[in-house]
Design a protein around this nucleic acid. Structure first.
Lengths: 339, 339
DNA sequence: ACGGTTGCTGCAAAGGATTGCAGTCGCCAG
DNA sequence: CTGGCGACTGCAATCCTTTGCAGCAACCGT
């Protein structure tokens, strides 16, 4: 039913080859012919059949995006950035959600890989070995994670932690608790290290508090342990955890930031709606998605693995100070904030 | 590089046709042959080339999902449901975000339509005329909206409002304010009508408050007007608006639910994290996505427009009572809640 | 005037899977 | 013994586009 290249060719009085060239290598065809073809294309509303093109070029013009959980606002933002930028290049995006399941992830990725030119893996839960294997057999760009010889975009977690600590230390905090996320998470490790280094630089003390789910519930679970450390400020793995912290602290009657300051990471929409509004390190989420697309497209254009190594984007966080951080409470008053 | 149907055929000692049939119409081929083919497929890790198949069948095996804003948790949830259910049918999902732009929407839909077998349009912003035109030339399922002869899945807004009102009236509220969303929104209209009917049934009074953006900011903007109506309870267009309301009311020192009760609609993740936790009408978001996929697939299998008309899914909301609603304040005490 | 470019266009093959049609074989009924 | 049917399988065309190669004309330099 839709117009084919032959219809266009007939209408323009040329061969299909010429139409094809007029569209994809315009400089190779005479200006007058090109104009006739363009007119015919316009008139017929012709759009090349992607399947037929894909059959011969071996390219689908599609890319895949794999995220652990679409309902998590962080990943939703990344996805938004990805599809916006992909559209600019006339590339379609398949989105797949693994439901935080590392096992399902590799199967899904393998299946998806056949249908796309390349994949963007966002915060993959898979192990390093699986990840390398996947990167071997298909074009991959990682977001929020690094792997040998695989391009990716990451956040400068160290710098982000540096900013948070500088803010907290300036407010007089000398002992700061860290509520970690999943142990297997690349981000947890780097944020923890960054925090540790930053605190060392400022001569402040670090109190690590377990490892928790990167969720609101995780924050609720972590709160009491964070309080028990005696720290006057808490840095959470992400905003969701920080908001959970806030909820539990409120329930216990601990004032934020009066008794305890709380800092998150991500700056999701929810954070400015929290009470008190959350101080956090804003991560450019959509930007990460956009850059991932650029990186992937670059890899596709030049699949030489030598140039691919080293193609890595680093994004920087920005401290957003809201209401959840304040001056450290006077030590002389005692730390027994609980009634 | 990847195995083709010919490789499989050679290994199994049959013709490509037989391989094709063994895979897609198993009952047509001898059991023994089928087993040999299956073994060869297994050994080679063969997967049919979707482009080649699409070329001849005219089907891509892909569907498209168009949402106004992926970063909005409501749509993210729908998207999650869509892609989960689509995967079950081995259908890939293209996701596109229109950035709330009605004009961009129709262009995007037209472009996307060529690459997929059908589209799921979630809360489309486009006008009725455009929508009908699109539905004419491609397979479409609507979510959160109806249109003549186009299948879709909607929420029973009337019933949801009924539940909210019953709850509020039981708490003694007799005058209830409605904070409406965008005027062009199908949901706004139906929720408003539903609320109006429910209040009439209970002999309670309705106070309509303008039309606001369906966002946190919209809620902030609406709060003062809602208070000024003298109502003892407010029903908001959605949870985002309700949370905005909460923020502004808190800033003004108006107690929720002490002075004013607030009810939202949607039950997004944020709602139970709000302070006070938001009473809301939970809409099954992922379910809407799942049903939309089923509907679309049904249309694809039977493109007869006669059967398509009337295929419509209706989902029901569920009242979730949290902390933002309570007994109406004593009228004798006076309504001057502001200090 | 002629060999050689240069610039443009067409021919035809290729890419992988599906499917209508025809062919083969075995078997049963007449 | 033979005609015919049923069950299965293979042949070959087809879907639409891209691209290497060849053809053709005009034009340049000598």
């Amino acid at each position: 039913m839709p117009a084919t290249i032959r219809d266009v060719a007939r209408l323009a009085g040329v061969s299909p080859s010429t139409v094809s060239r007029a569209l994809s290598m315009p400089e190779m065809v005479n200006a007058a012919t090109r104009a006739r073809v363009a007119a015919a294309v316009e008139q017929l509303g012709y759009q090349p059949n992607r399947a037929a093109r894909g059959l011969i070029t071996g390219r689908t013009g599609n890319i895949g995006l794999v995220v652990p959980d679409l309902a998590n606002p962080f990943f939703a933002s990344v996805a938004k950035g990805v599809q916006a930028r992909a559209r600019r290049y006339d590339v379609a995006v398949f989105v797949a959600d693994t439901d935080e399941d590392a096992a399902a992830e590799v199967g899904l990725v393998r299946a998806l890989a056949k249908q796309v030119d390349g994949l963007i893996l966002c915060s993959p839960r898979a192990g390093d070995a699986d990840l390398s294997a996947i990167a071997q057999e298909t074009n991959v760009v990682l977001v929020n994670r690094t792997a040998e010889g695989v391009p990716g975009v990451i956040y400068d977690n160290e710098e982000g932690m540096q900013q948070a600590v500088a803010h907290l230390v300036a407010l007089g905090h000398r002992k700061i608790a860290w509520v970690g996320g999943p142990v297997t998470s690349w981000s947890t490790q780097h944020r923890s290290i960054g925090l540790s280094n930053a605190l060392y630089d400022h001569g402040a003390e670090l109190a690590r508090v377990g490892s928790f789910a990167p969720t609101y519930e995780g924050g609720i679970a972590a709160a009491d342990q964070a309080v028990a450390t005696g720290a006057t400020a808490v840095v959470a793995y992400n905003d969701l955890v920080a908001i959970g912290l806030l909820a539990r602290l409120h329930a216990r009657g601990i004032s934020v930031p009066g008794d305890l300051s709380v800092v998150g990471i991500d700056d999701i929409a929810m954070s400015r709606m929290a009470r008190p509004a959350l101080t956090t390190v804003r991560l450019p989420k959509q930007e990460a998605g956009r850059i991932a697309v650029e990186l992937l497209l670059a890899v596709l254009d030049d699949p030489d693995p030598d140039t691919a190594i080293g193609t890595r984007g680093t994004l920087h966080g920005e401290l957003i100070v809201r209401e959840s951080t304040g001056p450290a409470p006077e030590p002389s008053e005692g730390k027994k904030v609980v009634a």
